[in-house]
Nucleic acid binder design. Structure first.
Lengths: 145, 145
DNA sequence: ACATAAATGATAATTGTTCTTAATTTTAAA
DNA sequence: TTTAAAATTAAGAACAATTATCATTTATGT
């Protein structure tokens, strides 16, 4: 992957930000310093950087736009149902997370959305089907996408 | 909310399914028994049923389409990175979830995505700003949407 | 500096979803 | 029941977010 000014700026800006901006928000932030940058370049590079594991693409409840996170490591977010703000939170998975959030952040959890991903029992047994598909996953009987 | 055949069928079909279909998938499933149903009706009613808390709209990582879940209660999903299948999982939040998933489902967790929502400390203090916006949230200084 | 593969900018096309309109269906009252 | 108002529908247009296209520009190895 080449190092271009656009790519470098996108990654550095996202890493510096504490928020989890959409592609367009990031575009507006970068535009003043790189006036000739195209929105498509921002989208393209965010996608690429996420594929490379340097950043993270996140799908937040209630937001029709995808958001991006400069921290590539699995971690939790807390989103306020009133203002929509999305913050990071570090959780020791052994603890009771909801109680922990209450006590450390003063954040009242009323709902949660948790997704674990990995290999299901079936796929662990038969890791044969490796055909690539558009969405980057493998084909498999259980695939509903 | 009125009881129409379309609405009833959408809710019942979604409840019966163990998967978490997209609006289009649900549309194809329902079409044979209700050939005159429109895709827009499926979208409209899924949105409505989710607003009423009868079903749940979920945003799964890596899927550009929204998915719907007949189980309206907050719960966890496990998605296989190989086949993309999304399953339900019941977790006592006090336990170590990853260990629990391994032991009960034989599912190897390699990544997770967790979002808690509720009221942040700021919004708990000043629940004044109640102006509705297009995305259904309230306006607030921290709002990045 | 040069060649060339890769990346960019501008914009067209596509995708997923919502809106609009007129027609139909449901509900509740007469 | 019949009837009228209100809600809901089907169909397709419109919309916003994202991706693809392609001519031009740029980064990197030689």
């Amino acid at each position: 992957m080449r190092v271009t000014i656009q790519r470098k700026t996108i990654l550095e800006t996202l890493r510096r930000l504490k928020s989890h901006p959409t592609a367009e928000e990031l575009y507006s932030i970068i535009k003043p310093s790189l006036p000739r940058i195209s929105l498509a370049t921002v989208y393209r590079n965010l996608e690429l950087l996420a594929e490379e594991g340097l950043i993270r693409k996140i799908f937040v409840q209630g937001s029709s736009q995808k958001r991006f996170d400069g921290n590539p490591h699995p971690h939790c977010h807390i989103q306020c149902i009133n203002c929509g703000k999305v913050d990071d939170i570090t959780i020791n998975p052994i603890l009771n997370p909801i109680k922990f959030i209450m006590e450390t952040k003063g954040f009242e959890v009323t709902n949660y959305h948790i997704e674990f991903s990995g290999l299901c029992a079936d796929c662990k047994k038969q890791p044969s089907q490796k055909e690539e598909t558009k969405n980057g996953r493998k084909k498999c009987k259980g695939n509903k996408n």
